[in-house]
C-alpha cells in the first residue's frame, strides 16, 4: 500500500493534511493519535469507503477510485462502530456477511466454525448478538471481517471501550493473525496497544504525521529511558518543576502530575527526596509511546 500526499477535506476542515506512507505485505502498521487526528478518515480512504480529496493511493496495487469493489473484496474492515445485525444470531451474522462476498454457504459454514473458535464464540454461535458483551461483539466483528480471508485487515480503534481483560484477549487474537501473515492496519489512541501490536507506526496529530518508526525506535528517539511520575498537591506542580529542573533531562507538567525524563529514574527520585520534597505518590517506569506523543504534540493521548 502506497499513499502520496493524501488529503481529505470536509468543507473547511482539513482532516488529513498531505500524508505519505508505505505499508508492506505482512506488516502490522499503526496510526496512533488522539481523537480527531485524522486516523479514521485515513482508514476510510484505505478501505475504499471514502474518496480522496487529493493525492494518490494504491491499495493492494489498485486504485480505490476505480477498483473500489475489487479492493474491498480482498480487505476486511473492523469499523469503529459495530455494524453487526443485533437481531440475528452470531452464526447468521457471519453467514450474511460472507454472502455479500458471494461465498457459497458451505464455505462460509466451514470458515465460520474455525473463526468462531478463533474468536472464542463457539458456544454462542446460535445466540442472538444483542445480549453479547462489548468484547464478544468486537471479536465477532473481527471474525466476520475475516470470513472472506482478506489479505489486509483494517482495524479502526478495535479495543476502544473494552475492559482490560477483553482487550488482552483481542490483542492475542490479532497477534496470531499477524503471525499468519495477514497485513494489519490499526488505529488506536492507546499507546500500549500500539506498542503491543505494531511493527511500525506513525504518530498522527492534526491530520499530519508527527513521527514515524518502530515503537522502540520512537521511544529512544523522542524520550528518555525512564520516567519518574510525581504527584503533588494540585497547583504545586509548576513550582516543583522549577526546583527540579536540573534533576532530569526534561520535566513535563500535567494537570495531575509531574513527569521527569531521565536515564536513571531511581537516582532522580532519590534526588527529589534529598531536596526535601515529599510527593504524595511517586512511580518510576519505562518510557512509553504516550511520552513520545506528549513530547511531539505537548498533549496527552486520552483526555
Amino acid at each position: 500500500m502506497v499513499a502520496r500526499q493524501l488529503v481529505k477535506r470536509f468543507g473547511d476542515f482539513l482532516a488529513v493534511d498531505g500524508v505519505d506512507f508505505e505499508i508492506g505485505k505482512g506488516e502490522s502498521f499503526g496510526f496512533l493519535g488522539p481523537n480527531g487526528a485524522g486516523k479514521t478518515s485515513t482508514m476510510r480512504m484505505i478501505a475504499c469507503m471514502s474518496p480522496l480529496t487529493s493525492g494518490t493511493l494504491r491499495v493492494l496495487g489498485m486504485d480505490p477510485a476505480t477498483d473500489g469493489p475489487k479492493i474491498r473484496s480482498r480487505i476486511g474492515l473492523v469499523a469503529q462502530e459495530d455494524t453487526l445485525d443485533l437481531e440475528l444470531t452470531v452464526l447468521d451474522n457471519l453467514m450474511i456477511y460472507g454472502r455479500y462476498f458471494d461465498l457459497p454457504k458451505k464455505v462460509i459454514r466451514e470458515r465460520a466454525e474455525r473463526l468462531l473458535d478463533f474468536a472464542q464464540l463457539t458456544e454462542r454461535a446460535h445466540d442472538k448478538v444483542d445480549p453479547l458483551s462489548g468484547g464478544m461483539k468486537r471479536r465477532l466483528t473481527i471474525a466476520r471481517s475475516l470470513i472472506s480471508e482478506p489479505d489486509l485487515l483494517i482495524l479502526d480503534e478495535p479495543t476502544t471501550g473494552l475492559d482490560p481483560q477483553a482487550r488482552h484477549l483481542l490483542w492475542d487474537r490479532l497477534y496470531r493473525l499477524q503471525q499468519e501473515g495477514v497485513t494489519l492496519v490499526i488505529t488506536t489512541h492507546y499507546m500500549d496497544e500500539a506498542e503491543q501490536l505494531c511493527d511500525r507506526l506513525v504518530v498522527m496529530d492534526h491530520g499530519r504525521f508527527a513521527a514515524e518508526g518502530a515503537p522502540r525506535q520512537l521511544i529512544e528517539e523522542f524520550s528518555t529511558k525512564e520516567v519518574v511520575e510525581l504527584r503533588f498537591r494540585s497547583g504545586e506542580h509548576e513550582d516543583v518543576a522549577m526546583r527540579l529542573a536540573d534533576v532530569a533531562e526534561r520535566a513535563e507538567v500535567l494537570p495531575d502530575r509531574l513527569l521527569l525524563y531521565t536515564t536513571d529514574g531511581d537516582g532522580a527520585l532519590a534526588e527529589v527526596h534529598r531536596r526535601g520534597l515529599s510527593p504524595e505518590s511517586s512511580l518510576v517506569r519505562r518510557s512509553t509511546l504516550e511520552d513520545v506523543f506528549l513530547r511531539l504534540t505537548g498533549r496527552t493521548l486520552v483526555d
Binding site: 478501505a47 469507503m49 473484496s73 462502530e81 455494524t83 458471494d102
Partner: peptide
C-alpha cells in the same frame, strides 16, 4: 441505527 448500509459498503457492494 443498525448501520446495515455501512456493513454492506465495507464489502464489494457499492
Amino acid at each position: 441505527w443498525w448501520r446495515t448500509y455501512y456493513a454492506m459498503l465495507a464489502t464489494p457492494l457499492s
